[in-house]
Write a protein that binds this DNA or RNA. Structure first.
Lengths: 229, 229
DNA sequence: GGTAACAAACAGACTGGTCGGTATAAATAA
DNA sequence: TTATTTATACCGACCAGTCTGTTTGTTACC
């Protein structure tokens, strides 16, 4: 090969993702993308056959990255505790940390953006989005089932929709953070999901402390007994 | 006045909303809107000065309807119980019912659609969206504060983000329902929000029942003591 | 010199928006 | 009662600009 085009390709994809999250896919014209990327139309169509091809490449890249991110956080959590409930809570806490790092260009989710323009994309592209969602749900759902085998929930819950709640909160929080221009909103919602799981499954809950004032305290009141399975 | 144009205007707005939720705003061309509405371009520009004017009219209509919907459900809930916690839980249950009714054309939220194309709209239009969000959050947040004065939460929570969770879940659930083509997903997430609030605030929780199998039971284990204020 | 990586001009379809004109019904005048 | 005016509601061809995608040519590197 002569010159190395991977940098150009990445520049185009990064620029496209940014423009798409600001204006949506159809308003993200190729001209605006190449202008932001600092390349020409020739370079664009060298790397991508069509605009739809770019869309597919973008979701595939994100899908790969998100799947890897989830595996990383799950493995980190599994290394930190042998209890499924704790693993899940830790994993969510890790996401909370990761999301707290996200700063100014208020985050957004390409999947959500595409879903609200879903008729523009072919079945393959939307299939990737769907698969990301089901994979996430099944991965979290599997953990949840392990939790439920050990800790009966305080209220009857459906595992599938409870796993989906994590996805739902993440997607909804992105929307909120965009409208409020506050990246911190995402982490806050992850925290609530962690709270919900604690309240549902943790074997011992603190009795409600009278003055609801001490809200600054750390909340790690749970030292879950590692069950002798 | 000569003929009555309100029906035409409504037809245009309904068609536009449907097309926008399928393809996004910028791909919802005026031609496609008038084709679905069964009117001509002349009729469109008689009722709306520009396409942006249509966008503003749409969010304003939704904002009004949603505010009214919330007031209705809050009032119904307040008529059914004098306890703030019960009122909130009932109100959420009412939304759960309402969302369960939503059928085939998998629902979506115009606000979310616009937020993911936010750079296309002027400050006025996005301001309406922002105001809908803050109004909702404040209305639920106010109820939550009343709850917190009576029932100390089992875990330290931030009222503002806890109120926002309802919005976040609703928005995220719309996304999930669209990608899954399952309108029932929305109601399921409302149920989880109700669970979370119960677990956080309800003074008496059932001890986790051993077999986690009986998931079909009704969950109204709470007969909240009406506090003698 | 051969090929990967780009540049730039161009074509054709589609976009939002305009504009002259028409149909209908109510208000007014004869 | 009938004729005329007037305002609302609507029609559809058309324009200027933007869109994606093509084509042809140039540059850099082995």
């Amino acid at each position: 090969m002569a010159r190395d085009g991977t940098a150009t390709r990445k520049a185009i994809m990064d620029a496209a993702q940014a423009v798409i999250l600001e204006t949506g896919f159809s308003a993200a014209s190729i001209d605006s993308v190449i202008a932001r990327a600092g390349v020409t139309k020739g370079a664009f169509f060298y790397h991508f056959k069509t605009k739809a091809d770019l869309a597919l490449a973008l979701v595939q890249r994100d899908a790969k990255a998100d799947a890897a991110h989830l595996e990383t956080n799950l493995q980190r959590a599994e290394a930190l505790s042998r209890d499924p409930l704790q693993q899940l809570l830790i994993c969510i806490g890790l996401y909370e940390e990761d999301m707290a790092k996200l700063a100014a260009p208020y985050p957004g989710c390409l999947y959500a953006s595409f879903i609200y323009e879903s008729q523009l994309f072919d079945a393959t592209t939307m299939g990737v989005v769907r698969q990301v969602f089901t994979h996430w749900t099944q991965r979290i759902g599997g953990k949840l089932e392990a939790v439920m085998r050990l800790y009966p929930p305080r209220l009857p819950v459906d595992v599938k929709t409870l796993a989906e709640t994590s996805l739902v909160l993440a997607e909804g929080a992105f929307i909120l953070s965009k409208v409020q221009r506050d990246a911190g909103a995402v982490a806050a919602q992850w925290r609530h999901y962690r709270n919900y799981l604690e309240l549902l499954f943790a074997p011992h809950l603190p009795e409600p402390s009278r003055p609801a004032a001490d809200a600054g305290v750390t909340h790690n009141t749970l030292d879950a007994a590692l069950p002798a399975q």
